[in-house]
Design a binder for these strands. Structure first.
Lengths: 227, 227
DNA sequence: TAGATTGTTAATCGATTAACAATC
DNA sequence: TAGATTGTTAATCGATTAACAATC
């Protein structure tokens, strides 16, 4: 029986699928609000309501975090929150610097939700000297020349890249040379980085393409019936 | 032979995968810059460089748009751009209204790249009366009470939802009652909508979870070798 | 105990990759 | 023609779903 139990935890060794990782934050959000309501246990069935998921998918995802539930009761919410946070890496704060204080960059600097997501933006940088010194949501914009020292003394590992496509590649290299190990890339450019640097690309165009295609297609589908 | 040719175009009828749709914008971006360089043809091999893709994936994706290439030459860039834009629905402007002029909303209002992506935000709205009347990136913020009439007279089909989670659901319903057919949802909430309304959810937490997990895991992987 | 819910194994589905014939 | 590149069919892979035994 003890052997059985360990097997669930061992799943952690399987390479976790990106699909699973992307679903975990939604569970977390729901779990927190259930916890605020004073509930103690939750079933995979309830959690599945967070999107349009099958309960068995939820159980598979949760198993990946090493958590074990109780038949008839479900999962202990408190335990589950801790397990998911630990699994993602949100149980400790990750410090990040933001490079590129334009529209999007400024918005991210003011994004309070990051507090809930284990991310703390501790420094803002920009190439543009005219922006240097300004306060954006309480953070002073610093010149790029101070990046390397800042990253080292503050022990920052993550960088948010929010500059135009043209200079994104050079800036990213500079960030990595400064000690950054992971880049959240909001520029519409593919970054070629050494293997030990993690890059996560974020591109609004992707979601918009899916949305607009579905909208045009839905319209097409109904008018096609006229044939 | 003519029959063979038509079969490629016929692929359009297959339900297109979301994965494919998400890749198309990146091809488009590269195609445009190749066109600016004056090139006329491109191979699937070159396009594959846009991410870390296999050329055969690119050919499959392009086939979904109905385009047909030429052996040895590749694809005519001009034709290909038109085909992708048409397929996604970016060959005609989609008009959108933005609801929620906070940090993120303001940033999106100033996001010039949407011009390239067939999206034109023609109106900005907010619940907060104090924001009404302000100009954000040239657009005046309007009160929610004017939404329905605006949507109808301007023939707007798309809505960008950038308000806090708490009121997102109610606001979304109101948008749909006002005539909106598609919602680009930036609030961390699942929206339950009638089947004929398309919802595309955008959640930064997903990408961040993937990034942070990979970063922690990479670190764990190297330190694990010490055992 | 009976019943609800978990965890696991097997089946299905769809997307990616491999292999290769067609063709300019 | 020879060779590069396309388009297609078959094989592989991985994720989702179905089925069900385990268990509180």
């Amino acid at each position: 029986m003890a052997k059985k139990r360990r097997s669930a935890a061992r799943q952690t060794r399987h390479k976790t699928s990106v699909a699973c990782l992307r679903r975990l934050p939604a569970y977390l959000q729901m779990l927190r609000s259930l916890q605020n309501e004073g509930r103690e246990y939750v079933s995979s069935n309830v959690l599945a309501g967070v999107h349009h998921l099958e309960p068995v998918i939820v159980r598979k995802d949760l198993a990946a975090t090493g958590i074990v539930g109780t038949p008839r009761l479900g999962f202990r919410i408190k335990e589950l929150i801790a397990a998911i946070e630990h699994f993602i890496g949100w149980d400790h704060r990750t410090k990040g610097v933001l490079v590129g204080c334009g529209n999007l960059g400024s918005a991210l600097l003011g994004h309070r939700r990051f507090n809930t997501l284990g991310l703390e933006i501790v420094g803002a940088f920009d190439h543009d000297e005219r922006k240097v010194g300004r306060l954006i949501h309480g953070l002073p914009v610093m010149p790029m020349t101070k990046l390397a020292k800042f990253v080292r003394t503050r022990n920052v590992t993550l960088g948010l890249l929010t500059i135009p496509a043209s200079s994104a590649r050079d800036t990213a290299s500079y960030m990595v040379r400064s000690g950054i190990r992971g880049i959240w890339n909001f520029a519409p450019v593919k970054l070629d980085m050494p293997d030990d640097v993690i890059v996560q690309k974020e591109d609004l165009a992707e979601g918009l393409a899916v949305l607009v295609h579905h909208m045009s297609h839905k319209a097409a589908a109904s008018s096609r019936n006229l044939n």
